[in-house]
Computed example of a mutant assay.
Amino acid sequence: MSISQSNPKSSRPAPFSLRLTTEEREQLEAQAGSMPLASYIKSVVLTDMAPKYRKRAKPPVAEQQLLAEVLAKLGATRSANSLNQIAKAIHQGTLYVDDELEADLNAAIGEIAWMRVTLMRALGVKS
Rank of each mutant, 00 (worst) to 15 (best):
L37Q: 00
D98K: 01
Q85Y: 03
P59A: 05
K58H: 14
R116K: 14
K52A: 11
L71N: 01
A57T: 08
P36N: 10
L46C: 08
A30W: 10
V70R: 00
V44W: 08
Q27H: 09
L83T: 02
N81C: 13
L101G: 09
D104E: 07
I90M: 07
A38I: 04
A57N: 13
S34R: 15
P60H: 12
Y53E: 08
M115R: 04
T77S: 15
A50K: 09
A108R: 02
I109F: 05
D99G: 09
R116Y: 12
A32M: 06
L101C: 13
N106H: 02
G75Q: 15
E69A: 15
A80C: 13
N84V: 04
Y40I: 00
L74E: 13
D104Q: 06
A32K: 00
Q85I: 03
E69Q: 15
A108Y: 00
L74I: 12
Q27G: 07
N84H: 06
L28P: 00
P59I: 07
D99S: 14
K42D: 00
N84A: 03
S39K: 08
L74G: 13
K52Q: 05
R56Y: 01
L101W: 01
K52V: 11
L66Y: 14
A68N: 09
L28K: 01
G110T: 09
A76Y: 05
P51E: 10
R116N: 15
A72I: 05
Q92V: 04
R54Y: 02
P60C: 03
Q65D: 14
S34N: 10
E111A: 09
K58D: 11
Q65T: 08
A30C: 13
K58W: 09
L101N: 06
K55I: 11
M49V: 13
A72W: 01
L28M: 05
Q92A: 11
A50G: 08
A103H: 10
A108V: 01
S82T: 07
N106P: 05
W114C: 15
Q31V: 03
V97E: 03
P51R: 11
A76M: 04
P51S: 12
A38G: 04
Q31K: 09
I90G: 00
P51K: 14
